[in-house]
């Protein structure tokens, strides 16, 4: 019933969503420092689908488009898994 906001639990949930929702089987385990684009080899469309999967999982609308828009403005255009965990902690 209670939603996980613990960092380690969220990290575990994200690992599941990456595996089951996006079909990502990384060679190295996903850690907070893992980068969405550079390390997992994903593209921005995969980030959109990740947003869909997370909303499905938590059964509610998350301000994911804001996160993507912010990403679009970044020079590096990358996102760490730690940032995704922080985003979920903020919004869940």
């Amino acid at each position: 019933m209670s939603t996980a906001t613990d960092e380690n639990e969220l990290l575990d949930e994200l690992r599941q969503v990456f595996r089951d929702g996006l079909g990502v089987e990384p060679v190295d385990p996903i850690t907070p420092a893992t980068r969405f684009f550079a390390d997992l080899g994903l593209a921005s469309i995969d980030a959109v689908v990740l947003g869909e999967e997370l909303q499905k999982r938590y059964g509610r609308t998350l301000p994911f488009s804001g996160l993507l828009a912010e990403l679009g403005g970044r020079a590096e255009r990358d996102l760490t898994i730690g940032e995704l965990v922080a985003f979920l902690q903020r919004t869940l």
Partner: peptide, 27 residues
């Protein structure tokens, strides 16, 4: 997303709809 008259966004070749998120056009 949103309410009101309908608008459809169509991306270009080799792209995808994520451009409309990154550019904040959809929002």
């Amino acid at each position: 997303s949103g309410d009101g008259p309908d608008v459809v966004l169509i991306h270009g070749l080799t792209g995808d709809l994520s451009i409309w998120f990154l550019a904040r056009t959809l929002a």
